[in-house]
């Protein structure tokens, strides 16, 4: 053993040295480092979870926003559509009213014209009758009395009217 250099004292010294080193490293290296590693692992997991959560929240918020946007769009579209329809209706109503008014005016005008024509015709008849009587008087020079004349003229007129 001595030739190999193995010596009880040195051997014990080396064993003690190793055990001391083991103890010190255990205390000041492995424990803190493994604790730190574990803590970091935990922290990373937590922040990943947190990031996931935030991402999900953002996605939810975005979906909600898009949903609202879509609803708003639909609402305004409906409103526009309704306005168009109402305008259309109003237009039709106005047109109908105008047509009705025009029709009324036309009818009234025709009635007026008819009435005037009848009136004028009546006037004309009297005037023509008078004229005819006047003329006939002049021509016949009182050969007939007034009643006979008038009857004659009326006959004449009735005939002409029947002709009409």
């Amino acid at each position: 053993m001595e030739k190999l250099g193995i010596n009880g004292n040195f051997l014990i010294a080396q064993i003690i040295n190793f055990l001391l080193l083991l103890f010190v490293l255990q205390r000041f290296l492995y424990k803190p480092v493994t604790k730190m590693l574990a803590a970091r692992t935990k922290r990373v997991q937590e922040s990943l979870a947190e990031a996931d959560r935030v991402r999900q929240e953002a996605a939810a918020a975005r979906a909600e926003y898009e949903r609202q946007l879509e609803a708003e769009r639909r609402r305004s579209f409906d409103a526009a559509q309704q306005a168009i329809q109402e305008g259309q209706k109003a237009r039709e109503a106005i047109i109908a009213q105008a047509q009705k008014d025009a029709e009324d005016i036309r009818v009234r005008a025709r009635d007026e014209a008819e009435r005037e024509r009848v009136q004028m015709l009546a006037q004309l008849r009297t005037q023509v009758a008078d004229l005819a009587i006047l003329a006939s008087e002049k021509i016949i020079s009182q050969a007939l009395d007034r009643d006979v004349q008038r009857r004659l003229v009326n006959d004449f007129l009735t005939k002409t009217e029947a002709l009409n």
Partner: peptide
Amino acid sequence: TDLNLTLALALV
């Protein structure tokens, strides 16, 4: 290069 060290480690 000292057998005392290597033997100490092996024994431990």
